[in-house]
Amino acid sequence: MNYEELKAYLLAKPFATLDFPFGDDVSVFKVKNKMFALVGTRNNVMMINLKCDPDEAAALCDIYSAITPGYHMDKKHWISLYFDGSVADSETMRLIDNSFNLVISKLSKKEQLSIRLLNHVT
């Protein structure tokens, strides 16, 4: 998955916006003004930070060398996925969906409903 494909997938989420609060080389994707993904590069490899359940995060870090605790993030609740070709695009999309759902689960019930109705998220 290249940056343009990744960006298109992230922005296809309901109410998703793109912001650059850390400079032009770090893309921050938000839903209702809450970050659910951050895309940048580290050691010349594209990476994405995603919110993740702590138990799943630990398991993912054990399974994939390309997934680590979140770089410059709360390492309990965020992971970094490096695009080195070892993680399938389908798994990357699943993790993005999970991050999006975790973030919207913390919004008000009214905001959650507006997103779920638009996205058919359950």
Rank of each mutant, 00 (worst) to 15 (best):
C52I: 03
K32P: 05
Y9A: 08
T17F: 00
Y82R: 09
G40M: 13
A88T: 15
V87M: 00
D84Y: 02
L38K: 14
N33H: 11
D19V: 11
S105Q: 09
L117W: 10
K7F: 07
C61P: 07
Y3E: 15
R42D: 12
D74K: 02
K106C: 04
I115G: 09
T68V: 07
S27T: 04
V28K: 12
K110G: 00
D74N: 14
L118V: 02
K32C: 09
D24L: 06
K7H: 15
I48Q: 02
S99T: 02
V45E: 09
T41L: 07
M35V: 11
I115C: 10
P54K: 00
V26W: 05
S80K: 04
I104P: 10
K106I: 03
A88S: 15
P14E: 01
S105Y: 03
F36M: 00
Q112W: 00
E111G: 04
T92F: 10
D97I: 02
L11E: 13
W78D: 06
K32D: 11
N2D: 12
D89N: 12
M73L: 03
Q112E: 03
S65N: 11
N98H: 13
F83A: 01
K76H: 14
K51I: 00
R94F: 08
K109P: 12
L81S: 08
T68I: 07
C61F: 07
I79N: 11
K7V: 08
L60I: 05
E91D: 14
L107K: 06
V103K: 08
P21F: 01
F22M: 06
P14N: 00
K13D: 05
N43A: 13
L113K: 13
M93D: 14
K110C: 00
